[in-house]
Simulated scan of single mutants.
Amino acid sequence: MTYIWTVKLFAGLPERLGMPELQLQADSEEMNAAELKAAISAQYPEHAALIQISFIARNHAYASDETCLRVSDELALLPPVSGGEEPQGTFRNEEIIERYVITSDTISSDDVLAKVIVPEHGAALAFVGTTREWTQGQRTVRLEYEAYAPMALATMRQIGEEIAERWDGALCAISHRIGVVGLAETSVVIAVSSPHRDSCYEASRYAIERLKQIVPIWKKEIWEDGSEWKGHQLGPWNPTEAQ
């Protein structure tokens, strides 16, 4: 019997493969994530290098190479997420759940901060990420963001749970834009509160770095003379690693 496996694609992958999702035939209704990536690479050998450094998501959670997948699962192939300032790597609606938002609308830092200010906390911080004009000598015209929204919201909530556990009940709220974000416009606001300022600073930094590592949001930099998808740029990308 032949089974049809469907895999959603994000960021530069739809452009490279020419479709928003791919389908491949297999003789089995089960395989692990490594086997699925190998099958996709065999079907699209010219993109094998990018496929091999991408991750499979199974039902909105990252899958390790050994994770067993079923043909009935919701599957996605996720290239490295956006973030980082080190050597460059090139990869070519709004929904609100509690304190975590993916939106195409403008973001107010005051609104996000208000979600974490509570009487028992004496410190609150908001990190605001904006589109800057110049990066390594290239002039950016705008950024375009894309998200795997259900999984992005789930991993944002995960970050909030990790922060609450590490810093004794600290609160976190994250709002991230998708779509076009112009120069000096806000793309992300991360707000954190805690009883004391030291833990608030630490938790805020943790939230920012963790968002870059595990939340499936990608950015496309649009320049005056071209564009490219930017992925994780801080070494090998492995969002399944424990922190």
Rank of each mutant, 00 (worst) to 15 (best):
V188R: 07
L234F: 05
P150G: 06
I4Y: 00
K37A: 01
I214D: 05
S64M: 06
L36T: 11
A42G: 10
E15Q: 14
H232L: 01
A11M: 06
E133R: 15
D198K: 09
A203S: 09
V181S: 10
K219D: 12
V112L: 06
I190M: 13
A123W: 02
T106D: 14
C172W: 02
A38R: 14
R70Y: 04
N93R: 14
H121W: 01
A152L: 08
P20G: 10
R177E: 05
W223Q: 08
R205W: 01
H60C: 09
G179F: 11
Q158D: 11
I208T: 10
S64W: 00
L13Y: 08
W134R: 13
L125W: 04
I159G: 09
E165H: 14
Q243K: 12
A203P: 04
I40C: 02
Q243E: 12
C68K: 13
Q52C: 05
P236H: 01
G182P: 01
I4Q: 15
R132K: 15
M1V: 06
D65T: 00
W237P: 08
T130F: 05
H196C: 02
G231I: 03
L36Q: 09
A242F: 10
L153S: 10
V141P: 00
A63H: 10
A152C: 12
A154F: 05
D27S: 13
E95G: 00
G226R: 02
L77V: 07
A164E: 10
A184P: 00
T130I: 15
V118D: 04
P239I: 08
A242H: 12
G83V: 04
A33R: 07
E161R: 15
